[in-house]
Structures are given as structure tokens and as C-alpha cells.
């Protein structure tokens, strides 16, 4: 069991490459290169689902990675203005392709958009690797 790794940064899409680097470092102990690349894409998708695509960078994005020997959990929390609520939806994934992409890349995911604070979570299990 590894203790959580936390990353906090201004809520700017341009800074999400920092998240990708951290995902790579956090996942490298238990996942294959291909799984790491999938997880990097998924976490980027998750973060983008929280950020307001037309908004400024007033908020902060906090990302916490927790891993055990079998899986990695990533929790993204946005404090401040985020993606606006649309049509009463609060799952954040008003863009249906985001859901499909996350379905394809990780085992579980959930997003909840709120006023002033939004949260997205995912879990990816590693494949059973036969180490020789």
C-alpha cells in the first residue's frame, strides 16, 4: 500500500501536462506502459470534465493518487468555478463521448459537479501480469 500522492495546481487546461507526468510516476510501479498511457488519457479526460471550457483560471484543481498492489484511484477536486451545470445534469459529463472514453479506459468512474466545488473519481485495476 502506498500513501496518497497529492498534487494541487491552478485550474488551467494548459497545466494538465503536470498531471500526466504525475500519473506516469504514480502508476509505474504496478502498471504496464500501455496501461499507464491509458490512465494518463483517462485522468486528463476526467480533469477536463471538471474545468469550464470557456472559463478563466480562478479555481484550483487538486488531484490525489492512491494505489495498492492491484489498482490506482484518482480523485480530482475542483474548488472554484468549473463547468457550468447544464440542463439540470450534475454528472459533469454533458459531453457524451467523455463517458464512452472513460468507460473504455478505466474500470470505474464518477463525476459530480456542484456549485463552488466539483469532484471526479476513477479507479483502474492493473492487468494480471505474469512476471517472468
Amino acid at each position: 500500500m502506498t500513501g496518497p500522492i497529492e498534487l494541487s495546481l491552478p485550474a488551467e487546461a494548459d497545466l494538465l501536462f503536470l498531471v500526466r507526468l504525475h500519473v506516469g510516476a504514480a502508476a509505474s510501479r504496478i502498471m504496464t506502459v500501455e496501461e499507464i498511457e491509458d490512465l494518463q488519457l483517462a485522468v486528463m479526460e476526467l480533469c477536463m470534465s471538471l474545468l469550464d471550457p470557456h472559463g478563466g483560471a480562478d479555481g484550483r484543481l487538486s488531484i490525489v493518487f492512491t494505489s495498492d498492489d492491484e489498482s490506482i484511484e484518482v480523485v480530482c477536486t475542483l474548488t472554484g468555478p468549473g463547468r457550468p451545470l447544464e440542463d439540470g445534469r450534475n454528472d459533469g459529463l454533458s459531453e457524451p463521448w467523455s463517458t464512452r472514453i472513460l468507460d473504455a479506459l478505466v474500470d470505474e468512474h464518477r463525476t459530480s459537479i456542484g456549485e463552488g466545488s466539483s469532484l471526479a473519481w476513477l479507479r483502474k485495476k492493473r492487468a494480471q501480469v505474469d512476471r517472468r
Binding site: 510501479r29 504496464t32 506502459v33 500501455e34 496501461e35 492487468a127 505474469d130 512476471r131 517472468r132
Partner: peptide
């Protein structure tokens, strides 16, 4: 090495294997 190990192991390699 990634291409070679993927072929040999039948899966994507781990970072420490690379």
C-alpha cells in the same frame, strides 16, 4: 525494448522491465 518485450511477454512491459 518495448516492442521486443511486448513480443516476448505477450503483453505491454512494466517500466522496471524496460
Amino acid at each position: 525494448a518495448e516492442a521486443d518485450l511486448s513480443q516476448r511477454l505477450g503483453r505491454s512491459p512494466m517500466v522496471d522491465e524496460l
